[in-house]
Design a protein around this nucleic acid. Structure first.
Lengths: 106, 106
DNA sequence: TTGACATGAAACCAACAGGTTTCCTAAAAG
DNA sequence: CTTTTAGGAAACCTGTTGGTTTCATGTCAA
């Protein structure tokens, strides 16, 4: 589960790519459908999708002449996992979850 | 609490900066102390610290001729919060998450 | 006061990121 | 078949990134 987070962090560093990720969280879409919702050209979106794919944040399946881009939420967890290094600083849900685990499953 | 995550994501996009963040999570340090642990020059580290500071990921206090760099964990939560958009994908994996936490933080 | 030390600041550079336009290929639709 | 349509790919441009070297400044210690 724990792998190199660099490709994921790199993929999420750009606001357009994060918006694409949110968009694909709602529904899988083709490149054209995605590009239609941004003020940049399709090749620009295609490059973003390639970077997202390299980080395994999305998976692509070819169907005829279309390419369906689907979110892979697991890759996001790779990045989310990195933040656990700082659990000790936080007072949020995750820290409470921790203590609950310690309490209920000693 | 919820603010623009872009400066934080940008700050965390570089592996050297993430390493600095982890390092400062252990203890606050001066620029020189940080630079001594990386194979790059001090000015390069100073630039990284500036980017981290712009993302409010670190806070800097001057003490004589030294500049003490301190982690601001709250800024990391700004990024961590972004991932909550995808909670719905993770809820059904909560048991797995629990067991992983238990395994890595016994 | 003198020197050593911690850092700032500027100039410079190669590589990369994000974007464009143009052209090409292949599948659907007619 | 012919024509749309979805996408791939290459060439190109500009601003940014991450790094360097060199030099200046302020502070602490002797």
């Amino acid at each position: 589960m724990r792998s190199d987070p660099q490709p994921v962090f790199r993929a999420l560093a750009d606001p357009t790519r994060r918006a694409i990720v949110v968009m694909l969280g709602e529904q899988s879409r083709t490149i054209g459908e995605i590009a239609a919702q941004f003020p940049v050209t399709r090749p620009a979106i295609a490059k973003h999708l390639k970077i997202l794919e390299e980080g395994d944040v999305i998976r692509v399946t070819t169907k005829g002449r279309e390419r369906i881009n689907t979110l892979n939420p697991g890759a996001l967890q790779v990045a989310a996992f990195w933040f656990r290094t700082f659990d000790k600083f936080w007072d949020d849900k995750l820290a409470k979850l921790k203590s609950e685990i310690e309490r209920t499953r000693p």
